[in-house]
Design a protein around this nucleic acid. Structure first.
Lengths: 340, 340
DNA sequence: AATCGCAGCTAAATCGTTACAGCGAAGTGT
DNA sequence: ACACTTCGCTGTAACGATTTAGCTGCGATT
């Protein structure tokens, strides 16, 4: 039993029959192969007792001849994330695959945030031909920067040295939010960030703060409101807590719409008006941003195009057989709505 | 060239070297295997010219010995869907996998709505040991009901005859919404549904309408507002159009929160008050439901538990080697908020 | 008595890759 | 002149499943 997973040959031995017979039975081809009913029973019984699971890799290898030998492109993401990003990435990659001449199989693989090193197939190349990795934590980025990875990999919305990536000019978005607030004459800016920061969101924050500095804005400190997690709920609690404890600001930049939604609800619940008392800017332009009250001023990244591009880059690397890296940076576009 | 995808042996022949040598070079093991630099160059060049892609199945089969021979559990979903459901299903399955003694690999496979029959690996068992299928269209359900599928499959949020499924008591949720409106003395109920209905949402609608009928509610017709798609935007447009064209109702049940969000915005934009003029009930209890203005009364399904259950059922079927079916039904729980 | 047909199997090839155990030639040391 | 090492490879056995082409008895037919 220490032999590891049960194979067809194990069943064959136990029953005392050939592996062809077992295969026929298990594939419901017993009639064609003229296997007697009692033999079928014995095979099924043995399969159940031994806990047989077909080996998918072997099956696919065998079937591969006439079937689809396509390129496997993985979208790897950590789960501790809003699914909206994943949806757009999948859509973008599909868009690329639809326009590609070669057949591409898209799979979504998941890893625990900070544990991308355990992503199956990443280090041994046994799961996919290439991958787009999104939602990495700093530990993941560090791992990716130093590890030897046998398949082409592209990092999404991160800039990892030594790797190819597709990212955004995050600082500039932050700076743009800052100048919008400054030109509106706001006096006390704040920024809402999650405790588990990601690289691009951190850069948005930095760009925002830096822009005030650069403009010699007469404020000693830009208030930083930290939310326990990247969610509506935590955004709400962080801002509620801030306001309840006597905090004050008249301009709030949330580094993600999800948190901005919570913030907007918190501000209204505190009896303050948006934008009169506090102006709010978000980032991501989720569909919901237009439908909250008031509609949210926010930045939008062309995520679908970016993902499509990332897919093209992976395929390019795949064909080059080179270890060169490529990078692409996109700008976020600001949509001004009633919240500012 | 008509041979299909390039294999290692093709490269070996072209370069005039053994396949072991090629393998060593391509796996960056050239140093250990003592392959001369010029030979490495020639191998890489040939690989590039021939467009070599390693066969993942073969690699995994080979590596399988010491590696992870785990059970592959697929979550298959159509893409024309909000990702929020997918996220919860993935989380539920992961939760189950974490508590399971045997190693389970989770993959997300996608299909085009109405084309689940083209889902790779579904008919030939070459991709996964078992699958949870969500977001099917009626055509998909029909296919699943009649097709011979070699792997255990469980349908999520659908009741497909001849298959195992995990679903919800959707009619009863609709009926509950109706009785809430009736007991509040509402006069003219309406229901907001998407044009591309799904089974559970259709049943919510039917249960809602039936409940009014059963109560001999004095209304000839329950207004049905049809949204072009299941999205905030389309929900908004449908309700705006309805109100602008002189339509009237004082109670609206949206079969999904996403559409309810659009509806709420539309009602407010039309100058009507919620719930004074129109009461609104949604379904799904998305996190955002608590943070819109007014907070939305809505139903919640324990999707994560349901998905975990579905995973357990697939594993059960896998071990039984039986073609029996199993079913589980969950009730939605109503959370009353300010929108009613 | 020889042949035929059929039931009920078996043997072996195959899919593409990797790992491991050599093997001949050239160079080095004594 | 001989053994020994190093270099630069080669040959082949797996990995686990499916498929195709048989093969062996046995009863029935001619």
């Amino acid at each position: 039993m220490a032999r590891g997973p049960t194979r067809i040959v194990d069943i064959a031995e136990r029953v005392g029959v050939s592996i062809s017979a077992v295969s026929a039975v298990l594939n419901n081809k017993a009639e064609e192969a003229r296997i007697s009913p009692q033999m079928q029973q014995r095979v099924w019984a043995a399969a159940r007792e031994l806990g047989y699971q077909p080996n998918i890799a072997a099956r696919r290898l065998r079937a591969g001849g006439h079937g689809d030998q396509s390129t496997y492109l993985a979208i790897a993401t950590s789960l501790e994330t809003s699914m909206e990003l994943l949806g757009k990435v999948v859509r973008g990659v599909q868009q690329f695959a639809a326009g590609s001449t070669e057949p591409i199989q898209i799979t979504v693989e998941t890893f625990r945030r900070g544990h991308v090193d355990k992503l199956p197939g990443l280090l041994d190349g046994t799961r996919f031909n290439g991958a787009i990795i999104a939602n990495t934590a700093p530990e993941d980025d560090e791992f990716l920067a130093t590890a030897t990875i046998p398949v082409p990999v592209i990092v999404f919305l991160r800039e990892v040295s030594g790797r190819s990536w597709v990212s955004s000019r995050a600082r500039s978005a932050g700076a743009q939010a800052a100048s919008l607030f400054m030109s509106a004459g706001r006096q006390q800016p704040a920024v809402l960030v999650p405790a588990d920061q990601t690289q691009v969101r951190l850069e948005r924050q930095e760009g925002y703060i830096q822009a005030f500095r650069d403009a010699h804005f007469p404020v000693a400190q830009i208030t930083e409101i930290v939310s326990d997690a990247f969610s509506e709920e935590m955004g709400y609690r962080a801002v509620s807590g801030f306001l309840a404890s006597g905090g004050w600001c008249d301009a709030l930049f949330a580094v993600g719409d999800i948190m901005a939604f919570g913030a907007v609800a918190a501000i209204k619940a505190a009896g303050l008006r948006i934008p009169e008392d506090i102006a709010v800017i978000g980032h991501d332009d989720l569909e919901m941003a237009r439908f909250i009250d008031p509609p949210l001023t926010t930045f939008r990244l062309p995520l679908i195009d970016m993902a499509s591009d990332a897919a093209a880059m992976v395929l390019g690397m795949l064909h080059q057989h080179r270890h060169s890296t490529a990078h692409r940076i996109y700008d976020a576009e600001l949509t001004v709505r009633a919240s500012t």
